[in-house]
Computed example of a mutant assay.
Amino acid sequence: MHASNFQLDLYLKRVGFAGDVAADALAATLAATLVANTATVKSLMQHQLRSVPFENLDVQAGKIVSLNPEDIVRKIIGDDGKASRGGYCYEVNALFAMALTALGIDYQFVFCRPMFYPMRRPKTHMALIVKVQGEQWLCDLGFGSYGLRAPVALSQVNLPQTQEFDCFRLISPTSGEYVLQAQLDEQWVSQYGFDLYPADWIDFMPANYLNSTHPDTIFVQKYLVIQQHATGRTMLVGNELKEWQQGKVTVTPVATDELASVLKQQFKLELPGKNT
């Protein structure tokens, strides 16, 4: 994944790699010393998850999300690494793929079928299979409420993976197919399924249009904003603010006239203009 305006040092500054990257020179030094290994992939993934929100504000503003790579960089990183916007799966996973490309780390996009709906759904979700140090890892920075918090090795089928206060596992119901499950209330709940057939970036254009416009998609129906942090996650789902802290959740109603202030205070986000 490549964008002409992507700069690794500005990406590191945006995601706060190695703490508060206050100086461009420090970010550039970090970029030069990063190596293609599993620890780097995990660290970058977690830094991005904790700084770049999953959000559908453009869809709620009546816009079709742009999958132009340069637009994604402008939206999430900006010209100086100080932007505060996020995006949904195609955008945040694409940004991560740009960082992997800059580091020379091999990966592929895969189509995923969401499985938490009551009926069978098309493959509209995007994830990445990252290939490093002789292993394939599922990386996903854009699955919303019960999204991964770290890479999961495809070789570790049926093995629970505790990630801070969440627990996941991969199962393989048939050869070459995988299902990601999250443990909720001591039950394993399927999140999405995928195979290893590689997807091209252009293949996601129809799914992006559907998610940006179709009234049956959650992105069109309600606000969905999620920020992960080390002890849990903060979520705006429709008119409710949900805060997970060390496995415990509190829910606070959000009135329409409180939306802008909640987005600003909890997620550092501004409401975009309608249809602009």
Rank of each mutant, 00 (worst) to 15 (best):
P173Q: 10
Q48M: 09
W201M: 03
Y197H: 13
S4A: 15
D20H: 12
Y107W: 14
L159C: 07
A28Y: 04
A97W: 08
E135R: 14
Q161M: 11
I105A: 00
Y197K: 13
A31N: 07
D20F: 07
Q191E: 14
V52F: 14
E270N: 13
T40Y: 00
M98Y: 09
Q246R: 15
A32C: 04
I64L: 15
G176F: 06
Y209S: 07
E258Q: 15
L8E: 02
L141F: 05
D71F: 02
V157C: 09
N211S: 10
L12V: 03
D106T: 07
P272R: 12
L138A: 10
I72P: 06
L10I: 06
W137S: 00
F111Q: 13
W201Q: 12
R120I: 09
N93K: 12
K131V: 00
T234Y: 05
E55M: 07
G104N: 00
V152Y: 10
D24W: 06
G273M: 09
G273K: 15
V157W: 11
L210H: 15
H47W: 07
A3F: 03
T162R: 15
N5G: 05
G232R: 12
L196Y: 02
A255H: 13
Q133W: 00
D24I: 06
H125W: 11
Y209V: 05
V254D: 08
T231L: 13
V59I: 15
S175A: 12
T252L: 10
I76T: 10
L159P: 00
Q265W: 03
A94L: 08
S190A: 15
V73H: 11
T40W: 01
D185H: 12
D80H: 11
G193S: 15
Q183P: 00
A260S: 15
G62W: 07
M126K: 06
D140K: 13
A102T: 03
G78K: 11
Q221R: 15
G134P: 01
A83D: 09
W244A: 05
A23M: 08
C89L: 08
P114T: 06
F54W: 13
K131H: 11
Q133L: 00
L154Y: 09
